[in-house]
């Protein structure tokens, strides 16, 4: 099998890799880069555990062939914190207790991030739609929705320069 060279941005860093073309983005993230925050659940796009951002939009990394990310920006859960401080979503998930076993959390947070990037003040319905591709078998979703609302509020406070 002839290898392919793929250039893309991973969590802000330019990367150029030469790999077999039959790898998914998920396999590259976990096995080539060792970033194991992104989880594999079903492997068929049903559970959302492998969700990452591709150019700011949530996608199932298990259903993206590595050549499809050529020239694009990939963000995984490891890329959300800045200079050692957590993203408002990560902080609010901890504060709200929106985590139990934690397996769905990275995907859940990235789906929420995709929403907040285009809508800083989402309604409950919009939040539910945004996480409708992410299964959580522990929490019952109530605390997750609460956490996303809290992050939206906190994010806004920050953007407004500390004013509430």
């Amino acid at each position: 099998m002839e290898k392919v060279t793929v250039n893309f941005t991973l969590n802000g860093d330019h990367e150029s890799i030469t790999v077999n073309p039959n790898l998914t983005l998920l396999e590259v993230i976990r096995d080539v880069f060792g970033l194991t925050g992104t989880k594999e659940g079903c492997g068929h796009g049903e559970c959302g555990a492998c969700t990452v951002l591709l150019n700011g939009k949530a996608v199932n990394s298990c259903l993206v062939l590595i050549s499809q990310v050529e020239g694009k920006e990939v963000t995984t859960i490891e890329g959300l914190s800045r200079d050692g401080s957590l993203d408002p979503l990560q902080a609010s998930f901890i504060e709200t207790g929106a985590i139990q076993c934690g397996y769905c959390t990275p995907g859940m947070i990235l789906s929420a991030k995709s929403l907040l990037l285009k809508n800083g003040n989402p309604s409950d319905e919009e939040i539910k739609t945004a996480i409708s591709g992410n299964l959580c078998r522990c929490t019952g979703y109530a605390k997750i929705i609460k956490a996303i609302k809290l992050a939206a509020r906190n994010g806004k406070t920050k953007d407004a320069g500390g004013e509430s």
């Binding site: 796009g45 959302g48 591709l54 939009k57 949530a58 996608v59 199932n60 993206v64 591709g133 992410n134």
Partner: peptide, 9 residues
């Protein structure tokens, strides 16, 4: 269609 992730791809 599908989910947000599927719709984005």
């Amino acid at each position: 269609v599908g989910s947000p992730q599927i719709r984005n791809t």
